[in-house]
Write a protein that binds this DNA or RNA. Sequence first.
DNA 1: AGGTTACCGGAGGCAGCCTCCGTGTACGGT
DNA 2: ACCGTACACGGAGGCTGCCTCCGGTAACCT
Lengths: 191, 191
Amino acid sequence: MADTDRPMRSDARRNRELLVAVARRHLRLHGVTTSLEAIAREAGVGPGTLYRHFPDRDCLVAEVLRVENDELRAAGERIARDVGPAERLDAWLGEVERHVASYRGLSGPLVGALEGGQPTPLGPACEEMIATTTRFLAESQEAGVARPEVTAHDLVGCAAMLAWLGSTGPQGTQQADGARDILRHGYKVPG
Amino acid sequence: MADTDRPMRSDARRNRELLVAVARRHLRLHGVTTSLEAIAREAGVGPGTLYRHFPDRDCLVAEVLRVENDELRAAGERIARDVGPAERLDAWLGEVERHVASYRGLSGPLVGALEGGQPTPLGPACEEMIATTTRFLAESQEAGVARPEVTAHDLVGCAAMLAWLGSTGPQGTQQADGARDILRHGYKVPG
DNA sequence: AGGTTACCGGAGGCAGCCTCCGTGTACGGT
DNA sequence: ACCGTACACGGAGGCTGCCTCCGGTAACCT
């Protein structure tokens, strides 16, 4: 076993970055079921190259998601700073929903990776979401805004559901608005 | 234009019924994305025959769903008869959720067909669900159990979301339990 | 400069979708 | 009972996408 941490060969790194960039666009346009071959084609590499860098679809998605994750973290910090305690949880969950909805069809895989029974490529993308939600939720519960029985997992699951519903068609957005309203009444302390 | 209501030829009817029966089993096992070719193969007919009877996947699913719809209707009547007004809506929505969850991946297409902008093959399967939900909801609202702002479309959307969440993996069921609890708190009058 | 090794990329096998068309057969009229 | 026709059958085949394997290429190290 030679030293495995040799730096990546230059052409490899170039191809990898190119693939991620192209994948990002394709995911935005066609959702997570977009054709991997098309991505390879547009990046000007063979299918083999794509599959070597990203053994399966989830690995590629996870890589693309790392960037978006930074944006989500920033949103979390902004909310902690600018939004009052009463609306903080709502605002945060809205961001989570938007994040999960960023690529059509992402909600399914993400929910699947939520509970880290065995680690999946998407696991890291979830952990931070859960962690931040736990923080905001605990705050809200101590402030008497959120019901104590609710858990962070529940809430992230709810956000994912909303993201899913919102992406099921033209009126999905309206459906999701109604459901979001019900959910907000549901996790808050009545009154 | 000859008389178009001539009875179907006997072999055609036989094949059609056979296809539906086989499709039913395959849908249960593999969800709505199951291979149509496999269904045709097992039914002993060519792909052409399948596509002639059911021009697209939704048409086949809709046909299979007609039977389950009868069961749902029966459940509705049972609930109206046996369940007290306080739990009636909960019980009904549970049935809707179970119905939508009967085939993995069905929730998406069903939600898409909920608002009948233009009629889809799955439209009829939705209308009755909406109608019954409207009835139970109105009852509950008059009884002061459900919040007046909630609509039947919202609730069916919620049931579909839960069905979706419950089918996303092993722990999806637990996730869905938590979300269902939140939703129930959300559509009821607090207190 | 030259050898080593990591990496490339395309060919190819497989499965699924859907269509088209030559063949076969159920049915209604005589 | 027979026949003609229109309806239905089913398989071949074109297309796309997934994924693997391997001969060749070029980057890197000395």
